[in-house]
Design a protein around this nucleic acid. Structure first.
Lengths: 252, 252
DNA sequence: GGCTGTCCTTCACATAGTTGAAGGCGGGCC
DNA sequence: GGCCCGCCTTCAACTATGTGAAGGACAGCC
């Protein structure tokens, strides 16, 4: 129905959280939006900006981060195809973090107002959006653990596994073979390490035969060994509860 | 209206997020619930448990945490009066973290199902609940930064400030004078430090005249100096957007 | 085809925070 | 009234990771 919409990946993803009626899907697909391309390194928004839009990634990779008084920064999340970068904007007023393109990125920019209204009129969609943010919150908790309690090697391996699984889920690559969207410095910002030490760790993993690298592409010899090295278990990503997006529907 | 309910603090808090009609408030207050008391140190739930209830703190302090293979642990959040520990249970199936009483604690245990239904029937309440979880997500991001990028002294000072502000907001104490609900070991688990080092840091802060301690009670000589030492700014706590809980109401 | 800029790599050294262990203090319980 | 237990404090190594700095590889651009 409707014209083929760039929002299809979003609708598909939401439908994996909660069964959606055709009307629900159509309502998502026909959300007003602009498609915007952003060069690697440019910012999507900054701390203190007013939250009037929501960004959904269509292609490429983005991250959110905070910067500290001494100039160091912490990357808080990596966003890829189908992810809402800031769905919370539908409800919150002020951004307290920054969003930056890691690679060239295409996003659909949706007025927060439109999402807010959609939530009011369609409980099933509201529920799906909420689950989406709950999953991001779960990932955030795991990152706190990663950065707080694991040593450098484990931390990096864990992140590599997460990026693999999520890219696979988004249909972008295999979990054990993908193109790393982050430089070593950015890996450091995500794992709270220095670029120098990330380099040491990557060489360690390479030397032990866990991964190989050429250019930016990453290759795991044996997924399970890397997952072990990273204490990685995917539960916190909450893989689709009902992966068959179909059944009956909401009371919409 | 209704009998005076222990859920009043919850309703009041939600009303600071979104204007609620009387019907909305009554619906919250009449949620089915059991009051349960838990001794310090006991667990409310554990990783892998099925999420069938939601817990709201009535008094005392609780925390959520994850435990790693080597036995170390990371405290992910501290919960106090009025906080939902796991509102997300209304939508998620499996817990991937543990919850433990830090002090003796009283919680209202509400069937997840009942909250889920409330969300479906009352968009304003759903919105308020969502905002509540968004605020917790925002706090979680700040914790990631804290643990990832700040040095020990800053980290601890930051946590002390957060506990102060939140206790003040919950009407439990003044931000600069309160009873610490965590032992030094638990402070370490929250800040990703060892108890030994937490001790050093606290002595440092005491020696510099930023805080004084007797028993568990904490006293800040000058709030601003501690906030500075902790790079603390309260925006991420998203203080009530409309602190006057009144106006018109939802379309309920 | 050389220049510029970004990213990766390597080095020697510095240090913040950990480890393991021991002792002290206070409070609750028999 | 004495004992036990949880919590805090102190110490002297130890080590994982950071720092600053320099060189090299590659890619895009004029």
């Amino acid at each position: 129905m409707l014209q083929p919409s760039v929002l299809l990946p979003l609708a598909a993803k939401l439908a994996t959280h909660v069964p959606l009626s055709n009307a629900d899907r159509d309502a998502i697909l026909s959300l007003p939006h602009k498609i915007v391309g952003i060069d690697a390194g440019r910012h999507l928004f900054r701390e203190g900006d007013r939250a009037t839009n929501c960004n959904v990634v269509l292609s490429g990779f983005a991250c959110t981060h905070k910067i500290l008084p001494d100039g160091s920064r912490q990357i808080l999340a990596v966003h890829m195809k189908g992810d809402g970068i800031d769905l919370q904007n539908a409800l919150m007023v002020l951004m307290e973090h920054n969003a930056q393109a890691l690679t060239a990125v295409e996003v659909a920019v949706i007025p927060a107002q439109a999402i807010s209204e959609l939530m009011n009129s369609r409980p099933s969609v509201a529920r799906a959006l909420w689950i989406e943010t709950l999953i991001h919150a779960s990932i955030q908790r795991e990152w706190t653990v990663n950065v707080g309690r694991r040593d450098a090697r484990t931390r990096v391996a864990h992140l590599l596994c997460e990026l693999g699984i999520r890219q696979e889920a988004a249909g972008l690559a295999n979990r054990d073979r993908y193109v790393l969207p982050l430089t070593q410095e950015q890996l450091g910002d995500a794992t709270a390490l220095t670029a120098v030490h990330v380099n040491r760790v990557l060489q360690g993993l390479t030397g032990d035969g866990l991964i190989t690298r050429e250019k930016r592409s990453l290759n795991m010899q044996d997924w399970h060994r890397v997952a072990d090295a990273g204490q990685f278990t995917p539960d916190y990503l909450h893989p689709a509860q009902n992966d068959i997006p179909s059944p009956p529907a909401s009371q919409a």
